[in-house]
């Protein structure tokens, strides 16, 4: 049972305050938010930082609920994804990972790269452009989640797509929220 201790040590060394793996629904989203909120509250975090972390968490979690691709491996179908929050002295890190079908990667990647190429004003313009013209998708999204994460965090979105199989990659996303209030 050494893996329990190993996992514990990994969480400690990576400064993780919350890890959830499994099926993601609106109900699990609410539970995760409540747990993280209690944790951040009890640490005495500034309310403005807490709100930004909460913001990014909601968008990351609802992205998984709405967009994570179902993993089909023979008879096994799974929606398993992972969500992590880390807290270091200077920042929070909101991290997520979920399966994505390879054909869906180019569209996602170009969207993320477009967002990372914009400054504060560029993001604001993009947000207004999307909100004016968007309609809520069948999945219930407005297409604004990543733009909002970039705006609220003030940081670039970090992402990778390690390969899982011939059909799937694992979409890994990290968003840092600085703990010092930006100027």
């Amino acid at each position: 049972m050494n893996f329990i201790y190993d996992l514990h040590r990994t969480m400690m060394s990576q400064k993780l305050i919350l890890v959830y793996q499994g099926d993601f629904t609106q109900e699990t989203t609410k539970s995760i938010l409540a747990m993280a909120e209690r944790n951040i509250d009890s640490s005495g975090e500034e309310s403005s930082i807490k709100r930004k972390v909460f913001n990014v968490m909601v968008e990351a979690l609802q992205n998984i609920v709405k967009h994570s691709d179902e993993l089909v491996d023979g008879q096994i179908r799974s929606h398993a994804a992972i969500f992590l929050i880390g807290r270091e002295s200077n920042r929070y890190s909101i991290m997520s990972g979920n399966p994505i079908r390879k054909e869906n990667i180019p569209g996602l990647k170009s969207k993320l790269e477009q967002i990372n190429g914009l400054d504060r004003d560029g993001l604001k313009d993009l947000y207004k452009e999307i909100i004016k013209n968007t309609t809520i998708s069948d999945k219930g999204g407005a297409g604004l989640g990543f733009v909002d994460m970039a705006r609220k965090s003030g940081q670039k979105l970090e992402f990778e797509f390690p390969e899982m199989s011939s059909e799937y990659c694992f979409f890994c996303l990290t968003v840092h929220v600085p703990r010092e209030t930006a100027e």
């Binding site: 909601v58 609802q62 909100i131 604004l144 733009v147 909002d148």
Partner: peptide, 12 residues
């Protein structure tokens, strides 16, 4: 106090 992006579209 807080709204998500899908709500922001509906607020508009």
């Amino acid at each position: 106090e807080y709204f998500n992006t899908a709500s922001s579209k509906l607020i508009l």
